[in-house]
Design a protein around this nucleic acid. Sequence first.
DNA 1: CGCAGCTGGTTACATCTGAAACTTTCTTCT
DNA 2: AGAAGAAAGTTTCAGATGTAACCAGCTGCG
Lengths: 169, 169
Amino acid sequence: MSSRPIIIAPTPLSTQRRLRLDDYLPYRLSVAANAVSQLIARAYVDRFGLTVPQWRLMAVLGENSPLTQQALCGRTVMDKVTVMRAERGLLQRRLLRRQPNAADGRSHRLSLTATGERMYAEVAPLALKYEALLLAGSDALEVHRLEQWLRRLQQAAAALSDAGAGAAL
Amino acid sequence: MSSRPIIIAPTPLSTQRRLRLDDYLPYRLSVAANAVSQLIARAYVDRFGLTVPQWRLMAVLGENSPLTQQALCGRTVMDKVTVMRAERGLLQRRLLRRQPNAADGRSHRLSLTATGERMYAEVAPLALKYEALLLAGSDALEVHRLEQWLRRLQQAAAALSDAGAGAAL
DNA sequence: CGCAGCTGGTTACATCTGAAACTTTCTTCT
DNA sequence: AGAAGAAAGTTTCAGATGTAACCAGCTGCG
């Protein structure tokens, strides 16, 4: 599709040329993420009536129970309000159980109910299936490298963010 | 921080193991994109009072004027409503000019005003600067490969999406 | 020509989202 | 022990977002 020539001698990043939105990494990242999110979100809403935040909670609790809301925020990288609301939804549908936390009266121990576990057993393979479809025809080494990239980007962004990127101008 | 062992022999994708949110690509992608978006969005709001959609319009129009709203939707991969609102904001601030389109009475030819151009001249280098910071210490070849990846993912998602991913189970 | 249907753009509405304020419980310091 | 401050969770409010209805101008076919 693209007429972009294959660049052998890669352009140094510091000496960058004109801005082209189409080649701008944050843009590409955002667009790709959106497309993927949309796809999966729709699938989960259709099949299970789960929103993305709800889905994430289930995913985390399915592999590691029980957890407090706080812990869930950390694992899912979501706001506490978002987690709260997702939790509420799952509680109403009796997919989640909420038990008092002996160690701390402010928080609760959250885990999947039997029904929740059953749903998780369907949800997880489907998730993996989607991942496999998206990555069809990619060797696992490459994929692993990509994931590393994404982690690094996230960290770099976080670092810049609370270093107050203002400093860097 | 993480106790995750370094995996030398990567697990094949098809024979996938349990779902681990932390290694789940759509999740990683979403989280990385969010972190990066947040960082940049904040910067642009602080410095220029621009939202992300507004920023995107300026970026596109800065490299290619004039365009119709429709065309902008295509280039920015944004909803027409989103484009409309961004446009409105820029018009109010006189960063954008809107001229009748001789070829079609329904649409308009949008381009940057002189003020808009001037802002673009500040905006673009800053954008590139951020990109450079995020990618600090990465060689351009790798970066290029990453961008290819992101494009492929986006396409794959789009394909699955309108193939009605239901078919794929 | 003129009506049916389409397309660019706009508006209205319902939802989602996150920041900030608030409540309760825990922790620390004297 | 008691007061000050921090942390977990909840509620509230304002802003952003997207879907669907809507209007106006274009296109194509009888």
